[in-house]
Structures are given as C-alpha cells and as structure tokens.
Design a protein around this nucleic acid. Sequence first.
DNA 1: AGAATGATCCTCT
DNA 2: GAGGATCATTCTC
Length: 175
Amino acid sequence: LLGKLLVHETSEGVTSGIIVEAEAYVSRNDPANHASRGRTGRNWPMFGPPGFAYVYFIYGFYHCLNAVCEREGVPEAVLIRGLEPVEGIELMRRRRGVAKLRDLARGPGRLTVAMGITLEQNASDLTTPPLYLAEAPGGLDQHRPVVRTTRVGVVAAKGRKLRWYLADSECVSKR
DNA sequence: AGAATGATCCTCT
DNA sequence: GAGGATCATTCTC
C-alpha cells in the first residue's frame, strides 16, 4: 500500500493522498489484532474478503481505517497511518481546522478526519468509488526508501516489526 | 523535546 | 466496568 493513492469522493468534494505509513495486524501470534480472539460485532469485516475497509471508532473521538488483506476467513488487515495530501487540500484544511499541510493527514485519526471517513465506510469496497485505492499520479515511486519498525501505541506483541513507512516523507506520525 | 492530561464512547468481558 | 491501533493542549525541563 505504501506509495499508492487513497481517494474519497464525497458530496463535499474529492480528497486524496499518497499512503506513506502503514501497520500490519496479522492472524498468527498477534494479540494486538482486534480479531485475535475471534469474530465480534466490531471486527467482522476483517473476516471478509480482501480489498474491503475495516473502520473502527477509538478513544471516543477518532476513526481508524484498515484495508483487509487476506482471503476470506483469515482476519488480517493493514492500518493506514499517514498520507501526503494530493487532492482536496482546502477541504482537508476545513475538516481538520488546521492549516499546515504536513499535519492534515499525519496519523490514523487525523487522516480519517481529513478524508471524511467514518463508520459509514466500514466494510466498503476499496477497489471502487467512493472510497478506493489507486495508483499515485505519475505511478508508484520505486525509489523512495522504506523503513520497517515496530507498531505505534501497541502493547501486546510489542517487539514485532510490522510497521512500514517512507523514510523521506514529512507525513509520518512517529520516527 | 518529552510527559501528562482530558476529551469521551464503543466494545468486549 | 475497564481499557483502547488517538490527538491537541498544557506543563516542565
């Protein structure tokens, strides 16, 4: 997903951004995975087919967007944690109430606000509009270096290096 | 630059 | 009833 474009077409307008930070939540030996203790009313989209969204509400304030990545029945997903804004920057500014480009979508909670993503998009198909993944304008930049490290804010399975980000990006939540 | 705090609510036990 | 895949603000150094 790194280097790909996330697009959301809404009645307010279109926003998009290049994904620069992501974390994997895997099905084996990962107690931090919401689905590690089986299917629940919240995590059910993780058990569905790949290419769909899993959105959840956290800390009473924010939403987090995941892309379900494994075949049906295997609950794995990737949390999108940072975007470089491309399209709809003024709309992102309005939604976020922040001017600095760098801070519009840096972090999982911020990017869902900037993109207008809520539980309404839970379990939606990420291969077709309104919320979908696409090639970045000009294609995928293969030359941007990738860093692999540990996940943010995760207590269980702390040592596992399941976070990746583009090293040269300003829009990464933590270094 | 880093630590502490509060906002606030859904989910699962 | 407890805790959480967060963020903005305020504090202390």
